[in-house]
């Protein structure tokens, strides 16, 4: 498994864990029937499923792997934010096992790839 996959899987697992916690909490609340709460839960599920759909394709190329990584990060970020907003607390996000380029850098590298055909390096530094 590549480092990109691993980091992305970690974020996706975190997002799912937060979603389970959030659903458990909300199912005991009358707010579960409020339109804005329902829509926020829906948005989180959409981000999680988008990352999951990209995970299925992540093995196809380094650009697909990077796309998955960024989608998983968004799912994790939104999960934390939604939990804070609807449940009033945050759940700790586990530290990644290893370092990776900043997400903004990965975003730029992906853009450079599409714009200029720049090769995306895998985690070992090889050109894919």
């Amino acid at each position: 498994m590549s480092n990109t996959h691993s980091q992305g899987r970690g974020d996706l697992a975190y997002a799912r864990h937060v979603e389970v916690s959030l659903l458990d909490y909300l199912r005991g609340q009358s707010a579960r029937h409020e339109a804005l709460v329902i829509a926020a839960v829906g948005e989180l599920r959409i981000r999680i499923d988008a990352a999951d759909a990209l995970l299925e394709r992540a093995g196809a190329s380094q650009s697909a792997a990077t796309a998955f990584r960024l989608a998983a990060a968004e799912a994790a970020r939104l999960a934390g934010q939604t939990h804070f907003e609807l449940a009033g607390s945050s759940l700790p996000r586990p530290q990644p096992d290893s370092a990776e380029p900043a997400l903004s850098t990965q975003r730029r590298l992906l853009g450079d790839h599409y714009l200029n055909g720049a090769a995306l390096a895998d985690e070992q530094g090889g050109q894919l």
Partner: peptide, 22 residues
Amino acid sequence: LGQALIGELAWRLQAAEAILQR
């Protein structure tokens, strides 16, 4: 900065394509 914006569009488009297929 422009490259980063394009990278953002690229993964979001890939996500939309992947979910459309699903």
